[in-house]
Design a binder for these strands. Structure first.
Lengths: 134, 134
DNA sequence: TTAAAACTTGAACCTGACTTCAAGTAAAGC
DNA sequence: GCTTTACTTGAAGTCAGGTTCAAGTTTTAA
């Protein structure tokens, strides 16, 4: 298939596919009359990229991830380390989001006379303490 | 205090403070010989901004938030709506992160012969289904 | 008093992940 | 054969949230 169809099927822009090729995230595609042709394999790869990227991986990270996947060997230590690091990042995101959630819920449901008073009562120092629990 | 001290105390760069003033997130500071002077009040405001921004609010959002805080009235409906929207965004982040976490944990602990086989077994369609549960 | 440190400004630059543009080539439909 | 649509390229533009630079002014310390 040509780039347009691939783009439609992967639900992203052709320009993004060309960009991925340029930065080496996708292999340089075969050409027919200088137009890129793709296989179902390519679609899978792009879907995986899209998935990872929507999950918050950066493109260099995904490149690393994919490079760890080429081998027919068991999951390597390099990849494991990467996944571990990402895992703790994700955990941090979850924790911070939870703290923000309760803060917002409090601000929404408290009975302070004004938002300003409420925020002052919560006190910045407390908020910042929350913030620092990274 | 001058901008440098404020910056040190708020733990951000002076240039950021000037930037905040420029985009109207901070009021234009009083000058002595053309140098900005700040009060403890300013420090509080900046700490609040920093807190909100590290919590994932955009600067325009924070501007809105702060504008909702000026009044000595109870929390307005505009602000409530904003907080509600932010709350559901935060919930979404938590959910997505949790799904990513279990996916990563699986990839780390499964007994597949290779990462490639494992990912194929999980199957992209399943991953994408997970992804779409927005 | 003089040198260094801190401040001022506007303009340009940075990162990440693309998109848009201009100008040209290829393919598809009638 | 002609027109529209899809593709090609490199270069430049976009967004947020600042940072860095250059060139000048003020403040502070020795």
């Amino acid at each position: 298939m040509k780039i347009g169809e691939l783009a439609r099927r992967a639900e992203l822009n052709s320009s993004a596919i060309r960009y991925y090729e340029k930065i080496g995230l996708l292999p340089v595609a075969q050409r027919h009359s200088n137009q890129r042709r793709y296989s179902a394999e390519s679609l899978n790869r792009i879907l995986l990229i899209r998935f990872a990227s929507e999950m918050g991986f950066t493109l260099p990270e995904i490149k690393l991830f994919l490079s760890g996947m080429k081998e027919n060997a068991p999951v390597g230590p390099r990849w494991k380390k990467f996944a571990q690091r990402k895992l703790s990042e994700v955990q941090e995101t979850i924790d911070r989001s939870r703290r923000l959630k309760s803060l917002l819920e409090h601000l929404l449901h408290c009975r302070c006379a004004s938002l300003k008073i409420c925020v002052e009562r919560l006190s910045l120092s407390a908020s910042l303490r929350v913030l620092r629990q990274k």
